[in-house]
Structure formats: structure tokens, C-alpha cells
């Protein structure tokens, strides 16, 4: 199955989105966003993969060896860092929501403010 990893990425995106839409708890919502973002890791790494190629670390393999794409791996690294910090910021917002409105249910939050 040459498209299977891409399907996994698409599935993660959709299932995370489903979780966000139906979420009843802000922490759960942040976790669902993390699931969505992990789809980009799978997609990036899958795009850069080559059969039989080594990791792009030339510390112990001769130069000229076929390696997988280092660019998408660097992008994934960026992605992971941004995801972690965004999750921290959103969780801090969830703490504030709990303090200020006494609830972390997104539905009730909308009602309170409206």
C-alpha cells in the first residue's frame, strides 16, 4: 500500500477535528488539537521517506549513502516544538477559563459570554 501512511495522516487530522467539534472539556480539546497536529508529522516524514535509505546522519555512514529527506525532518522538529508550546499556552488559557467562568465546557463558555 503505497498511500497507507498518507491515509493515516488524513485519518489523524479528521479524527482530531471530530474530537474538537464534539469536545466537552477544554483540556480534551487541546489534546485533540495535538492529535490533529501529529498528522502533519506523519505526513511530512512519510513524504520524505525512501525505501532502503538511511537516517541523514553521516556520523557513521559513508558520505554519498542514500538518505531520507532531512528537510522534512527539520520541519517536523519545528512542528513538534511549536505544537508543544501552543499546547502549553492553550492549557494556561483553560486554567484561566476555569478560574474566571467556573467551567471548562466550551459550550457553556459560549453561553456565559453571549
Amino acid at each position: 500500500m503505497s498511500v497507507f501512511p498518507y491515509i493515516v495522516a488524513g485519518w489523524l487530522l479528521l479524527v482530531g477535528l471530530w474530537g474538537i467539534v464534539t469536545s466537552r472539556h477544554l483540556v480534551h480539546l487541546v489534546i485533540c488539537l495535538s492529535v490533529m497536529q501529529s498528522s502533519t508529522y506523519v505526513l511530512l516524514l512519510a513524504v520524505g521517506y525512501r525505501h532502503g535509505a538511511k537516517a541523514p546522519i553521516f556520523a557513521d555512514i559513508p558520505s554519498g549513502t542514500q538518505v531520507v529527506d532531512p528537510v522534512v525532518q527539520a520541519l517536523t522538529l519545528t512542528d513538534v516544538v511549536v505544537e508543544a508550546t501552543v499546547a502549553a499556552l492553550l492549557l494556561a488559557l483553560a486554567v484561566q477559563a476555569q478560574k474566571r467562568f467556573g467551567t471548562v465546557d466550551p459550550d457553556e463558555l459560549g453561553a456565559l459570554r453571549g
Partner: peptide, 18 residues
């Protein structure tokens, strides 16, 4: 198709970075 990466940047970098 998965496993048949053909992007030019990755291949070039794999050869020139070191």
C-alpha cells in the same frame, strides 16, 4: 508513492551538507 521520495532538496542536501 510512499518510499519513492524524489524531492531535489533532500537529495542535494544529503550530498553536500557534510
Amino acid at each position: 508513492p510512499f518510499g519513492h521520495y524524489s524531492g531535489i532538496y533532500g537529495i542535494v542536501l544529503g550530498h553536500v551538507a557534510v
